[in-house]
């Protein structure tokens, strides 16, 4: 059971949160102008890193804020959490 540091509420038990998969994925600006392949890449392809992974979590039973967490996928250690907008997303595609 993880202990997650919500950027607003502080350390809370994992059960209060909802996992949102890889974080910082940017929706293409003009979806109609890109190929099926590029769109599929945005839709389905995720990094699934062994090591440090940028994830998005929702403090669903707390302040209802989405935020980003840098989690080490081997040790499950969470190194940092960030409010949305605190760090620049990498552009996908």
């Amino acid at each position: 059971m993880l202990m997650i540091d919500c950027p607003w509420c502080g350390n809370r038990d994992e059960s209060e949160f909802m996992y949102g998969g890889e974080g910082n994925i940017v929706r293409p600006q003009d979806p109609e102008s890109i190929s099926d392949d590029s769109w599929s890449d945005y839709l389905f392809m995720r990094k699934n890193t062994k090591g440090l992974y940028m994830e998005q979590w929702l403090h669903s039973y707390g302040c209802r804020r989405w935020f980003l967490a840098e989690r080490e996928t081997v040790s499950y250690e969470i190194l940092n959490t960030h409010k949305i907008g605190e760090i620049n997303p990498e552009s996908k595609s």
Partner: peptide, 11 residues
């Protein structure tokens, strides 16, 4: 609700 908040807050 979670889905809508995701879009509002992140995108």
């Amino acid at each position: 609700m979670n889905w809508l908040e995701l879009w509002l807050q992140t995108e």
